[in-house]
């Protein structure tokens, strides 16, 4: 549909430009330098999100199915799938608040879902943080 560069390649081109051309040029201005590094990091997050999003959508959906003991099919349209997942997440919040997950077995099942969801968030947002904490845990 679109000519290259692809979406991933566009982001990559901008990031490499920032890293190689802009960063050295703004080094004398500490604030601008810092903000440029932050911007590069955000592009990396965006690149990882493109890479992982479909897989994470599938696993999050499946975990909610397991938690709620049903077998809803993941909508084939990507936007619809994301919107529906957000709705299921809102519903989960209501259930937590209503005490649906207070009993121990359900609470533990919920906890597992939340921990895995947070790990997936970190795989996109901050893989180095995740790796450091996990290394520390296995080191103990």
């Amino acid at each position: 549909m679109y000519d290259r560069p692809s979406l991933t390649e566009l982001l990559d081109a901008v990031r490499v430009h920032l890293e190689h051309q802009v960063v050295p040029a703004v080094k004398p201005d500490p604030r601008l330098y810092f903000h440029t590094l932050v911007a590069i990091n955000l592009l990396k997050i965006a690149e990882r999100e493109l890479q992982y999003r479909d897989a994470h959508l599938q696993t999050a959906w499946q975990r909610l199915n397991d938690l709620e003991a049903n077998e809803k099919a993941l909508p084939s349209d990507a936007q619809e799938a994301l919107d529906t997942l957000a709705l299921r997440s809102d519903r989960l919040c209501q259930d937590i608040r209503a005490g649906v997950y207070d009993a121990e077995a359900r609470r533990r099942a919920l906890f597992k879902h939340l921990l895995l969801s947070t790990r997936e968030q970190l795989e996109v947002a901050s893989p180095r943080f995740l790796q450091t904490v996990q290394q520390e845990e296995t080191g103990n």
């Binding site: 810092f34 921990l115 947070t118």
Partner: peptide
């Protein structure tokens, strides 16, 4: 602000830590 924007995705670090501490 790009710095403020970035904090939205940094929140997951604190979420992971809070879950680990609960565990």
């Amino acid at each position: 602000s790009v710095e403020l924007a970035s904090l939205g995705r940094r929140s997951a670090e604190m979420q992971y830590e809070m879950l680990r501490l609960i565990e």
